[in-house]
């Protein structure tokens, strides 16, 4: 079997119309670290990209029979990635080591993730890297209020980049940052204007890189160490809320898989994100899980627990699903595997 971490990473840069995706990409591509990067863009914007490996993708979605919207294969992307890989193998283009996809402003990034993780040919050559979402400091708050697409783009991000903070004369950044931290506590919020943007932090430090995932876990555990009240309470933008469940009892991997596949099948559209550090029964190292709607990344692990706290912690970003019901349900499924030892989940951090 191919080593998953050795596959070519694909980063998705998404964000609402005019939120500065292309400007961000332009700055990142100027870095020598990203010299061997192929770029796929959905639309040519006003900001010109001058890059030797730039290809344009027309937007089309193939909805699978009986499938939901998030489980649609993006036919255009499928063709482009297959063609790109074929050109690379034939030596017609330089041997790129990373692909960056810039979506159109209203695109739903989840079908892109689904295409990368589930398309039979693509999944053997590529893996999904970080999803980076840009948010405009001036208009971002209004866009979150008015457009569910914008909320979803922020909820599924691994990195949130706030752009145009230099134009923010009314001091909207702090409120926007608080709101983003409530909406997606596991993603660091980065100001685009803060000097040199480190491509490594945005793109390379991802869940499939051993060092990257350790630091990533440190980041989101630190975010959850802040009481929910200090992060500004609960955000209910379009019914979307985030919370972190903590379990004292080790989780049985088989029971967890049964529960999570069932939850994703019935409620996947409303489970925007699941990200967790699991204490799996019978295993000394923690297992990391990372899911978006109906899609799950292959689980990874840390070599050791980051600190003395060995409880399972799972962050959920959901739309209209109550925390208490999810908590009780997972506890009940876990008791199936271990009816005596399993107890109700401990008080959560968020």
């Amino acid at each position: 079997m191919t080593d998953y971490a050795a596959l070519i990473p694909i980063n998705v840069i998404t964000g609402f119309l005019g939120s500065g995706k292309t400007s961000l990409l332009q700055r990142l591509l100027a870095s020598p670290d990203l010299r061997d990067t192929a770029v796929l863009v959905n639309e040519f914007g006003e900001v010109g990209l001058d890059h030797q490996l730039l290809q344009h993708v027309a937007e089309s979605t193939l909805l699978l029979e009986n499938g939901c919207l998030c489980c649609a294969v993006r036919g255009d992307l499928q063709d482009s990635l297959r063609r790109l890989f074929s050109q690379r193998e034939r030596g017609e283009i330089p041997p790129f080591r990373r692909v960056v996809i810039e979506t159109s402003g209203l695109a739903d990034p989840v079908p892109i993730a689904y295409t990368i993780l589930a398309e039979p040919v693509i999944q053997h050559h590529f893996r999904l890297g970080n999803v980076v979402t840009t948010i405009d400091a001036v208009n971002g708050g209004r866009q979150l209020d008015a457009y569910p697409e914008s909320v979803k783009q922020a909820a599924i991000a691994d990195r949130l980049v706030v752009t145009k903070t230099d134009l923010d004369t009314e001091g909207r950044f702090d409120a926007l940052e608080r709101r983003l931290r409530q909406l997606n506590p596991s993603a660091p919020v980065i100001r685009a204007a803060d000097g040199a943007l480190a491509p490594e932090r945005l793109l390379a430090r991802d869940v499939d890189d051993a060092d990257g995932r350790r630091r990533d876990v440190d980041d989101w555990l630190a975010a959850h160490a802040v009481p929910a009240g200090d992060r500004g309470g609960h955000d209910h933008t379009h019914g979307v809320a985030s919370f972190c469940l903590t379990f004292d009892t080790p989780l049985d991997w088989t029971a967890f898989g049964i529960w999570m596949t069932m939850l994703q099948h019935r409620h996947g559209e409303n489970v925007l994100r699941i990200k967790g550090l699991l204490n799996v029964a019978g295993q000394s190292a923690p297992v990391l899980i990372n899911g978006v709607q109906h899609i799950v990344h292959p689980p990874t692990h840390l070599d050791a627990w980051p600190d003395a706290d060995h409880r399972s912690r799972i962050v959920f970003i959901t739309r209209g699903l109550e925390r208490a019901r999810i908590e009780a349900s997972l506890a009940a499924f876990n008791r199936l595997a271990n009816p005596v030892a399993a107890r109700a989940p401990a008080d959560a951090l968020a």
Partner: peptide, 23 residues
């Protein structure tokens, strides 16, 4: 809801044999 299994995919994420390093 998926293409899992078609043309010999990677294996389902819940199966530990699909990700031996993790377990």
């Amino acid at each position: 809801c998926g293409l899992c299994g078609v043309l010999g995919g990677r294996g389902h994420w819940t199966e530990t044999a699909s990700n031996p390093d993790t377990f």
